[in-house]
């Protein structure tokens, strides 16, 4: 009972910012972070940076595209398909908000 009260008090005293769950997931956070420092990255470049599988990159980039955080350009290099991603203005704002939330969380706990 005492433990439950303590836990409740912690939540009230240190409110968790309402952060963006979409980019809170590790792989999606990495995709958005990598694209924040590169104007464009291809599918294979993202896969190498993230050290993950084709399927994983595919699933998470699609989710970010659906949220309009990424734009995607498909083309051909010879016979090979080439998919190039870039961060949209909405995606950049989302990352900035997320960084602000993390900083706020650190500051709240520090001063709480």
């Amino acid at each position: 009972m005492a433990a439950k009260t303590a836990a409740k008090r912690v939540v009230v005293e240190t409110p968790i910012p309402d952060f963006d769950r979409l980019i809170h997931e590790k792989t999606r956070l990495a995709i958005v972070s990598a694209l924040a420092v590169n104007s464009t990255l291809t599918f294979n470049e993202l896969k190498a940076i993230l050290k993950t599988t084709d399927g994983n990159v595919s699933v998470h980039t699609r989710k970010l595209e659906e949220a309009n955080y990424l734009s995607c350009k498909k083309s051909f290099e010879g016979r090979m398909p080439r998919t190039e991603y870039s961060l949209t203005a909405a995606g950049r704002r989302a990352l900035q908000r997320y960084l602000d939330h993390m900083e706020a969380l650190i500051n709240n706990v520090r001063t709480g």
């Binding site: 990495a30 972070s33 990598a34």
Partner: peptide, 15 residues
């Protein structure tokens, strides 16, 4: 939160 910020920074550096 600190871990998340470090993860973002490391990913940006790697990228």
């Amino acid at each position: 939160a600190v871990d998340n910020l470090r993860y973002i920074r490391e990913t940006m550096e790697r990228a």
